[in-house]
Amino acid sequence: MAKRVGKAGKAKRVVKTETPRNNGIISFNFSEYEKWTYSIKCGKFNNHFKNFEQASRHFYFILSELFPYVSSNTEEVFNGRQDHCHILRKENEKFARQVINKLYGNDRLDETIELWELGKPTQEIRVIGSFVDRTFYPLFIDHHHLIYPSKKYNDPDYEKYSYKAQDIPNEYN
C-alpha cells in the first residue's frame, strides 16, 4: 500500500533569486581569454621566467596579493588614485595590443576597448586586461614591467629567460 502524502500547502518562506551584486568590488573573469597566463615573446616583450620557482612566486603573488589588493581598492583604481592601476595610453597601449594580437590573433579584441594595467606598489608584476563595468578580464601578464619600462622594476636578465608558464604542468608529471 502506498504512503499517504500530506496536502501541499503554501511555502513557509519565499526565496528570492537575484543576480548577485558585487557591491562595487572588482571581480575577475578568467575564462574569456584563456591564454592570459601564457608566456610569450613579442619584439622587446618577454614574459618568460627564469625557472619554475620564479613562475610559482609570480603566480602566487598575483592570486594572493595583487588581485585582492586591487579588489579592495576599487574606488581608488577607478578614480585614478592608485598609481600602479591605470588605463594604458599611446605607445604603451600600442605595445600591449601587439602582444595581445600575437597571443590571441588580430581579430580577438576590439580596438575601442580600453586596456588597463593592474599592479601593486613595490612589485614589478603587472596584469594587462580590460574592464567591463567592474569585472576585469586579464589578457596577459607583464612579469618584468616591460609595457612601461623602468630600470627600477625591470629585471636586467629578462631577455635570457625561457621558462614558459605553459611548462608548469610538466613539473608535476
Rank of each mutant, 00 (worst) to 15 (best):
S72I: 13
E171V: 12
E32L: 13
R108F: 06
K164G: 00
I100S: 03
S31Q: 14
T74M: 13
V15N: 08
L139H: 05
H84D: 15
Q54N: 06
E53Y: 11
W116Q: 01
S64G: 01
R13C: 05
A55S: 07
H144S: 02
E18Q: 13
K7P: 03
G119M: 05
K90F: 05
L66W: 06
N101T: 04
K16W: 08
V127E: 00
D133M: 11
K44L: 11
A96G: 02
F49K: 03
P169T: 00
D133Y: 09
K41E: 10
G129E: 02
F67G: 04
Y148H: 15
S27D: 12
F131Y: 08
D110G: 02
Y38F: 13
I128K: 03
K120G: 03
L103Y: 01
D157P: 04
E18V: 14
N106L: 11
N79K: 14
N22K: 14
H144K: 04
Y172D: 12
Y158P: 01
S150Y: 09
Y69H: 15
G129Q: 05
K7T: 00
K50E: 13
F45M: 10
H58E: 14
N23W: 12
K152P: 05
I141T: 10
Y33G: 00
I87P: 00
A2R: 12
N73M: 12
E124K: 14
K12T: 06
H84Q: 15
F52D: 05
I25Q: 12
F30S: 05
E65W: 06
F52C: 05
K12D: 03
G105Y: 02
L63T: 11
F61I: 04
D107H: 10
Q54I: 09
W36Y: 15
R89F: 04
Q98D: 12
Y69L: 14
N92A: 15
G105M: 04
G24A: 05
P68D: 06
N51I: 06
D107I: 06
P169G: 02
P20W: 03
T135Y: 08
Q82W: 03
N106Q: 11
Y33R: 07
E76F: 11
I100T: 02
L118Y: 07
H48I: 04
T135E: 14
F61T: 07
G43F: 00
Q54T: 08
E171N: 11
I125S: 01
K10Y: 05
A2N: 09
L115F: 01
K10N: 08
Q123S: 13
E18H: 10
P138D: 06
E91R: 14
D167E: 13
T112K: 15
K90I: 01
G9T: 13
K50L: 15
F45G: 08
A8F: 06
F30V: 07
I62P: 02
V99E: 00
D83R: 15
E159I: 14
H48D: 06
P169M: 01
T17K: 14
R81I: 09
S31W: 10
E114C: 07
A165Y: 13
E114Y: 03
Q166D: 09
R126L: 00
D157G: 04
F95A: 08
K120N: 01
R21P: 03
N46R: 10
E91M: 10
V70F: 00
S27F: 06
D107P: 02
H86R: 13
L63M: 14
N79L: 11
K94W: 01
F45L: 11
T74P: 03
K151H: 06
N22G: 06
T135G: 04
A55F: 05
K35D: 08
D133W: 08
V15Q: 10
